[in-house]
Each structure stands twice: as C-alpha cells, then as structure tokens.
Write a protein that binds this DNA or RNA. Structure first.
Lengths: 157, 157
DNA sequence: CCGCACTTTTACGTTTACGTAAATGATATA
DNA sequence: TATATCATTTACGTAAACGTAAAAGTGCGG
C-alpha cells in the first residue's frame, strides 16, 4: 500500500474547511509544486514572495508546506498584482491584518491606496487612449504615403 | 573662423522645419543644452539616444551640434516613445530611412510595427479596464465592511 | 587671471518581478 | 542500486530608459 504524495491537480476542491488545524500531516497542505500549479505561478515566484515576506509557509524539514491561509494570502497577492499594486504595497496592507481585531486601519489603508491606484489606472488608460489615437493618425498618414507611391509610376527626389 | 564641414548631399533648404529658433548658437546649430530645453528632455537623454545610434549630431571639437535633421529625428523618436515603441523599434525604423529613395520598405515596416503596437495598446487598455473594474468592486466591498464596523459599536465623538 | 556656467566621458545605480543557472539534497519508483 | 522527479539555497542576470555622481576640459565675462 503505497501512500503516494498525491499528484497535484487531484485535490483541487477537497479539503477546504476553515477550522482544521491538525498538528501532524493533514491534507490541504500543498508542497510548492502543487501550490504553483494550483495558482498558475512558478516555483520561483512562490519563493520570491516568501523572500519578500508575503508568504510564510510551514516547513517540514526544509520542504515548504502551504496551508489554507497561504492560499488565501496568495489569492490576495495575485488580486493585488492584477489591479496594479506593487508587492510592497500588497505587503504593507497584508501586514496590517489582525485576525483578532476589526482591521479598521487595514481597511482604511487599503481603501486609501485603492483610490490612488484607481486614479493611476484611469490616468494610464487616458495615456493609452492618447497613444492609440496618435498611432492611428500616423498609420493613416503612412497608408496614404504608401498609396501615393504605388499610384506613381516613377519619381525622383 | 571655423568652417564646419557641411554635408553636401543633404537637403538644402527643404521645407521641413516647423519651429523658428530663438536661442541658437550659430547657423541653426543647437548645443546640447539648448536642444534639451527645446524638446523638454535631459542632456542625459540626448547623449543616451546618441549612444544608442538614434541621433548623430555634428561635432565642433568635442561639443555636440544638433542640426535641423537631428531635430526632425528627435521629434520622431519622441513620437515613437509616446505611442509606446521601444527605442530599438524606433531605431530599426529610422535606420531604413533613405533620403534618396521612395522609402517604401521603411513605410511598410513602420506600418507593420504600428499595427502590432496598436494591438498591444488595445490589449493594455482592456487589461486596465479590467483592473479598474476589479479594483472598483473591491473598493465597494471594503467600504461596506468599514460601514458595518462603524455602525456597530461606538464612534469617535 | 579667476570663477562660473556649460560641456565632456566613464561608469555604476535605479526600479520591479522575477528568470536562470549551479550545486546539492530528499523522496519515490523501477 | 540506479534513475527520475521534486526540492533546497545562493546569487548573478534581465529588461528600459535613463539618473547620478565623478573628474576634467572649454569659453567667456570681469
């Protein structure tokens, strides 16, 4: 009876309860490879996040074991990245999290940062719109120049 | 009396200038500081562009002298940057410019690159729109959480 | 002749989020 | 045992577009 270490991808939505805190080996602990696959990131990324203090997986000897908490944190990190926060910002916000409190300060900070980030995003969008317009204009010009060249039989500068 | 070696094959009096200069040193030759001020870039930027082969100002000894041609090129560079081209792309397109030809190949390359860049820009815009929406949603959530917290107990008088 | 503004070259620093070895260890299967 | 897969740490590399000294040369007014 070989207890395999369970290939990643087979345990996607199984153990997801919030109150299991087994001291020994319980399922729901992912090794780095499984964690990476589950979230579509690389091993390097997970180690990097840990190095930056964003994740704190348990250890079995030297092997990282990711818990439900780590999954929640990673989910937040990836959301933060998606909306354009730097990892530093994400960390700053996460560091304020206190499971035994109201987290009002954390929420305020998050909201504050979010407002600024939203402004940045809107500005970026405007810049891009501008670029799109300018580029479109240039392309129209170039197309005209090419059209002229192809209708002309010959010419010299 | 320093006779600067004028390039013979250049465009003598071509109708290409868009600005009238006021602070030039000599016959329409700008020194680096004037050039920088005129275009709103730093000295470092001009030297950097030269180092990358995007600009080729003349020299009076060791002093850079920017001609009308350099101004036109810089204008193009800055336009390229604005619409999101890399300096490498800009160089690649400029390197194909031949004042004695029809420049069909250059125009085609520019158009090709432009189409791809336009696609990238539109994609970026979409990503940003996505981010804006996600962030807005998160903010709504956070606001609700904060509202709950403040309607519960207390309140700072 | 002095000082000051301007310019020159060289070259390392900055930013962000990882990529990419290199060398080694641990576990599992054949 | 041999092989394969997964894991570890350390640390330099990457990309883009310059920033920022550092140390020295050039030109002009006073």
């Amino acid at each position: 009876m070989t207890m395999k270490p369970m290939k990643a991808g087979d345990n996607a939505g199984a153990a997801d309860n919030m109150f299991v805190d087994s001291g020994e080996a319980g399922d729901g602990f992912l090794r780095i490879g499984e964690m990476a696959k589950k979230f579509g990131v690389t091993l390097r990324t997970l180690r990097f996040y840990e190095d930056k203090g964003l994740l704190h997986p348990h250890r079995d000897g030297s092997t990282r074991l990711y818990t439900r908490r780590d999954k929640a944190r990673l989910k937040l990190i990836l959301l933060g990245r998606k909306v354009g926060f730097s990892l530093r910002d994400v960390k700053q916000m996460m560091d304020l999290y206190d499971p035994s409190g109201t987290n009002t300060k954390q929420l305020r900070l998050a909201l504050d940062k979010s407002e600024k980030q939203l402004a940045r995003l809107q500005k970026q969008r405007d810049v891009i719109e501008d670029a799109i317009n300018e580029l479109s204009n240039s392309m129209t010009l170039v197309r005209k120049m090419l059209a002229e060249r192809s209708t002309q039989t010959n010419s010299a500068a």
